Simulated assay, not measured.
Amino acid sequence: MYKKTWGEKVFDGSNYILLCLLVVVTLYPFIYVLMASLSDPKFVAQYRGLLLWPHGFTLNTYTFVFENPMIATGYRNTLFYVFAGTVINMLLTALGAYALSRRYLIGGTTIMILIVFTMFFSGGLIPTYLNVRNLGLLDSAWAIILPSAVNTFNLIVMRTAFRAVPESMEESAKIDGANDYTILFRIFIPLSLPVMAVILLFYLVQHWNSWFPALIYLRTRELFPIQLILREILIASSTDTMTAGNVAQLDQMPVGETIKYATIIIVTLPIVCVYPFLQKYFAKGIMVGAVKE
């Protein structure tokens, strides 16, 4: 049996301590926000220090949040952006990756160089805005979805995964009469599920956390995603619509503070619940992009 040296034990112990500290530093802000959202607003307004459990447990704050019609509207819009955007992202990324992964593609190397070029250089915010405006997408849901339809990094990762599929399988499928769409959806994608799951997670998180494109391209509040509503609540302190009918019950300022915490939990919780189901594919899938050809 291998016996660790004193130096190795010190090194391992230091790693454990460092990782535990990182876990505490990363997890505690979320715990604080959760406990504050479940605590009495007056207590939260006056309390200073660690908060590891709710004081004066109450769900009134969440009631105030869900009474705001913009929360429900923002959630509905975000779910649409996430679902429609992710479907378009995955479809276009898979089609592009499959075409670029074929070594017989004429001009494939040149196309890849041009695609990779966009990772380092872009037209900038103003040309992008003018492009979206000239396409007639301003103040529409498609202004959020179409400009970011394909992520270059995800395309490269998926292309690398598709290149790892043996060419003999593609040739056998063609002999049996399969076309490119059949080969892609019945051979390449099933054999690349870990990579597909990771890229799916990337696109889901991207759409769920996105707020800047909506701030730039949208003017109609009924199209705002939940993240933009959250920004208004946190930065602009726009909690009047939630507290206006409840001022007689509690002071508006303490309620406004706990409403911010409750809104953060409501916005963050869904993506936190989705992540564990895809996490097992994460390490295996993302390593594919590091494989050299």
Rank of each mutant, 00 (worst) to 15 (best):
Y81A: 07
A173I: 07
I115H: 06
L155A: 13
M158G: 12
N77S: 07
F153R: 12
R186S: 12
L137W: 09
T128E: 11
S101N: 08
E167I: 11
E167S: 14
I156V: 14
A197L: 11
I126K: 01
V150C: 08
L130W: 14
S168I: 10
A197V: 12
M196C: 04
L146P: 01
A141C: 14
I111H: 00
T152D: 11
Y129G: 08
N154I: 04
N77L: 05
Y129A: 05
L130K: 01
Y81R: 04
F121T: 13
I145N: 03
F117V: 00
V116Y: 06
V195D: 02
F117E: 03
Y81G: 05
A197T: 02
I144H: 06
V116N: 10
Y98N: 07
L146C: 02
R103T: 12
A94P: 08
S140R: 10
T110M: 14
Y129S: 03
T73V: 06
S148M: 08
S148V: 15
T109N: 15
F66P: 08
R186V: 04
F66M: 03
L125R: 02
N77A: 07
I115L: 13
I175L: 13
V157G: 12
K174L: 12
I156R: 15
G124S: 01
R133A: 10
L105P: 03
F120C: 06
T93I: 13
L95H: 05
S192A: 08
G108I: 04
A94L: 10
A97E: 15
L79F: 13
L184Q: 04
L193S: 00
L155I: 00
F64Y: 14
S101F: 13
A141D: 01
D176W: 00
N179R: 05
I187W: 03
T86G: 10
V87P: 07
M112T: 00
P69V: 03
I106D: 10
V157N: 05
I145K: 01
K174G: 03
L146G: 08
I88L: 07
M169V: 11
I115G: 01
L130A: 05
N89Q: 15
F120S: 13
T109E: 06
A197D: 01
A72H: 11
T110N: 14
T128V: 00
A143Y: 02
T93V: 15
G85N: 01
G177W: 02
F83P: 08
F83C: 13
S148C: 12
K174H: 11
I189N: 10
M112G: 04
A173C: 01
P127E: 13
L191K: 11
Y104V: 08
A197E: 01
I183D: 07
N68I: 13
G136P: 09
M90E: 01
V65N: 09
A72G: 08
L100D: 06
T152C: 11
A178I: 06
N134F: 06
I175E: 07
G108M: 04
R186T: 09
K174P: 06
M90G: 09
R159P: 01
T160R: 08
F66A: 04
R163H: 11
G124L: 04
D139H: 12
A99R: 15
F153K: 06
L91Y: 02
V157E: 01
A94H: 12
T110C: 15
I115W: 12
